[in-house]
Amino acid sequence: METLEQKGIRRSDNGLFEDKYMLDISQLTKIYPTPKGDYVVLDDLDLKVKHEEFISIIGHSGCGKSTLLTMIAGLNPISRGTIIANNETVRGPGPDRGVIFQSPSLLPWMTAYDNVMLGVKQVFAHGTKKDRDDIVKYYLSKVGLEDAMYKKAKELSQGMQQRVGIARAFALKPKVLLLDEPFGMLDSLTRGELQDVLIEVWNQEKITAIMITHDVDESIFLADRVIMMTSGPRAKVGDILEIDFERPRLRKDVLEHPDYYKYREHLIDFLEH
């Protein structure tokens, strides 16, 4: 039974087992009205994400990946269709869906600690002060910032700011983690470091995660499934690739795995056609 639970299968009210997804997106459509008529970004998109699954969404620029993510986050109104996250229909933003933005979006006048605390205070309003303090410090040291906790966000490098962004998202213990090209603005060395940080924290928390990315290698290294989106307008899911590497993954093992280049070729093949 435990294994069933792990796979995202839950006992329903009538005692029977049935498939329940952490995130269930059905017939999702996004239309932007323009003077020349409606512009359909996403058209009848369906996507189901299991508990504790890490999926990445890859596709060309402007295909509506970010639109999809902001709609799940509740920051962007839905034109048609439904998004059900953790058995609740998404109607607006909420702390059950943590977001790591592309730009770190830290409040530059606050310290790293205060930036994380701002959300923690909101979510753990009933906990003691000590508990909240522990949570903030735990996650900041998890992302390797124990020495820079009390630095102002503006004094941190881009990479370190995004580490704070990761800590802030995980510290809120969301049900779903949404990552909008979180490493897109970083140089490739820092990007690699941060992928390691992210996957390390994620291995312990196993929060259902959806990540938008441009980077083929990143998507293979991090995800259980890679969702390939067709080019817009009227974008939808084009293909899905299961990545069967064992977890926890080490970058070295993944790169040396015989299937790695097969996966890579599959993705590049899709993106080039």
């Binding site: 986050a73 509740g74 920051l75 607006g92 933003p93 909420g94 702390p95 869906r97 943590g98 977001v99 933005f101 730009s103 979006s105 409040l107 701002l118 959300g119 909101q122 979510v123 809120l172």
Partner: peptide, 12 residues
Amino acid sequence: KDYINVAKVLNL
């Protein structure tokens, strides 16, 4: 807008 989004996501 990023800051406003942070406020929204955190439900401030």
